[in-house]
Amino acid sequence: MRFLPTSIHGVIDYLWGFALLSSPWLFGFADVPVARWGAIVFGMGAILYSVFTAYELGALRILPMSLHLILDGLAGALLAASPFLLGFSDQVYLPHLLFGLFSVAASLITRMEVTLATGHREPV
Rank of each mutant, 00 (worst) to 15 (best):
M1A: 13
M1F: 05
R2V: 02
L4A: 04
L4V: 09
L4R: 02
P5D: 08
P5Y: 07
P5C: 06
S7F: 04
S7M: 06
I8W: 02
I8A: 07
H9S: 06
G10Y: 06
V11N: 10
V11Q: 12
I12T: 03
I12E: 02
I12K: 06
D13W: 05
Y14K: 10
Y14L: 05
W16L: 06
W16Y: 13
G17H: 07
A19I: 14
L21R: 03
S22N: 02
S22Q: 05
P24R: 01
P24E: 01
W25A: 07
L26E: 04
F27G: 00
G28N: 05
G28R: 00
G28A: 04
F29Y: 03
F29E: 01
D31V: 00
D31H: 03
V32P: 01
V32K: 01
R36M: 04
R36H: 01
W37Y: 12
G38H: 00
F42I: 14
G43Y: 04
G43V: 10
G45I: 11
G45Q: 05
A46S: 12
A46Q: 12
A46T: 14
I47L: 13
I47T: 13
Y49M: 08
S50E: 07
V51A: 15
F52Q: 06
A54M: 09
Y55E: 12
E56P: 02
E56H: 14
E56Y: 11
L57Y: 15
L57T: 12
L57M: 12
G58P: 01
G58N: 08
A59L: 03
A59Y: 00
L60H: 04
R61C: 11
R61L: 10
R61T: 06
P64S: 15
P64I: 15
M65K: 12
M65L: 15
S66D: 13
S66Y: 09
L67A: 12
L67S: 05
L69K: 07
L69D: 11
I70F: 07
L71G: 08
L71C: 12
L71R: 08
L71P: 01
G73H: 08
G73L: 07
L74Q: 05
L74D: 11
L74H: 03
A75D: 00
G76E: 02
G76N: 11
A77K: 04
L78W: 08
L78N: 00
L79Q: 09
A80T: 03
A81F: 02
P83R: 12
P83Q: 12
P83G: 10
P83V: 08
L85N: 07
L85R: 10
L86N: 09
G87R: 14
F88H: 04
D90P: 04
Y93M: 01
Y93Q: 04
P95L: 04
P95I: 12
H96Y: 02
L97R: 12
G100K: 05
L101F: 02
L101C: 10
F102W: 13
V104F: 11
A105D: 03
A105N: 02
A106K: 10
A106N: 13
S107T: 02
L108T: 06
T110W: 14
R111E: 14
M112T: 13
E113M: 07
E113Y: 14
T115I: 13
T118W: 03
H120E: 15
H120C: 11
H120I: 13
R121I: 08
E122G: 09
E122A: 14
